[in-house]
Nucleic acid binder design. Structure first.
Lengths: 225, 225
DNA sequence: TTTAAATGATAGCTTTACTATCATAAATAG
DNA sequence: CTATTTATGATAGTAAAGCTATCATTTAAA
């Protein structure tokens, strides 16, 4: 049996659902490739169109602008990650074990998942590291929030926050600790590879060291209460 | 006696030193105002020129592009903050007290400092919160790093890392914890004001709560060793 | 098979990002 | 106190980015 995984996307993100057509799926696929390769600033609909073999106008029929594309693929990633977490922590009773799995998932470079044909999770993970915060670090964050564009991120944060509370019911900052884990999993990775003297991982450049750091950070914080 | 504070800037950041001329100082002053008001993406040399009452070409004589302007003002801020830290922790022997002062400085909205005429530190602090990570989250991070554009940030990180080591000589991740404090001081603030459900500070929206969170995070991490 | 929906091809417009040129004003050196 | 460097102003122009519009054609659904 061939399984196919579908992430439910916010309809306001697009003008026409990219999942429904070949061109749409190509837009997602090539956007991920281009943004990963050149960075979000250098990413344009013109280049994307050339890459796919369609025209600029064709892209605009699916997405209002490139920021929406970024929001789309990042939302997709958070949705996918939440699914991974629920899958991997299923039947796990010990919340400490759960939380450790979450940290490992956040801090590990993922492999491309065959269940999602037009999305390369490995590239997407790199995009999350380098471009993730650009989704919300804008002046339109309030408007975008009204459209619920950050719901997948908030949901993930809530899931992790609840696991933290399971570990330590009296801990005062479950959500802020959750965002700290998420953001730091990615920032420490970026720093390790680009500005290593900002981290303690410059020598080995091992993701596993980041995970050790995050485990230490999280479990010393919550073990007290 | 009127004191004047000068931050030594990396010469590669500009084509002509903006500190030396009225126009140059205006470029810095109005850049800070515009970036704070409209965000970095909407910031253009044309608008800046109109704001100042000069021409686009005039700006280009000082800065190669708007990203260099961002790097300039952000570098300035880190330099200024390192000075604030060294000033405020001077004569403090207890490293725990020092570290608490650092966290407070990072997490508190600063007031405009009269000692620096053309720089509004209060606006600059807002820019650090919303735009700070865009300085390095680019494809040119490697090139920019060769120019030493991130030295002020690295220096600050080293200073904080050393205070952490003073508190707890065996702690394994002083630099990563330092960047975590710095980044989270700003991200939690951004989230609190824009996406409050990502934090535990949505009700009060008090900076002091972020500082409590960071203190808890840091001191539970380092107290073990 | 008719009708609607999706795509391709092309054009055009405004803004951004940047370079170049030349005249003039201000500062400074001889 | 003039000569000359240096900074600024004014203007022009180019390539690319960001976006909208139109119409013909292909593809898919009724």
């Amino acid at each position: 049996m061939k399984l196919q995984l579908q992430i439910k996307m916010n309809e306001d993100l697009f003008l026409r659902n990219p999942e429904h057509t070949e061109l749409g799926r190509n837009i997602i696929k090539h956007s991920i490739q281009l943004i990963e390769k050149d960075g979000f600033e250098a990413f344009t609909f013109k280049k994307l169109a050339e890459d796919i073999g369609t025209t600029e106008a064709g892209i605009y029929r699916y997405f209002e602008n490139k920021h929406r594309v970024l929001l789309y693929i990042i939302s997709w990633y958070w949705g996918w990650l939440e699914y991974q977490i629920s899958f991997q922590t299923n039947n796990v009773t010990d919340p400490v074990v759960k939380l450790k799995k979450v940290i490992k998932l956040l801090g590990t470079t993922v492999e491309d998942d065959a269940k999602t044909s037009y999305v390369n999770e490995s590239l997407l993970h790199q995009i999350i590291i380098s471009e993730g915060s650009k989704a919300y670090l804008t002046k339109q964050v309030g408007e975008d929030n009204k459209h619920q564009f950050f719901k997948p991120y908030k949901d993930l944060c809530a899931v992790i926050g609840n696991i933290i509370l399971e570990c330590s019911p009296k801990y005062k900052y479950p959500r802020s600790l959750a965002t700290t884990i998420i953001e730091m999993a990615h920032f420490q990775n970026f720093f390790m590879n680009n500005l290593p003297s900002l981290t303690d991982f410059g020598k080995n450049k091992e993701e596993s060291d980041i995970i050790l750091f995050l485990n230490d950070l999280v479990f010393s914080s919550i073990k007290k209460g």
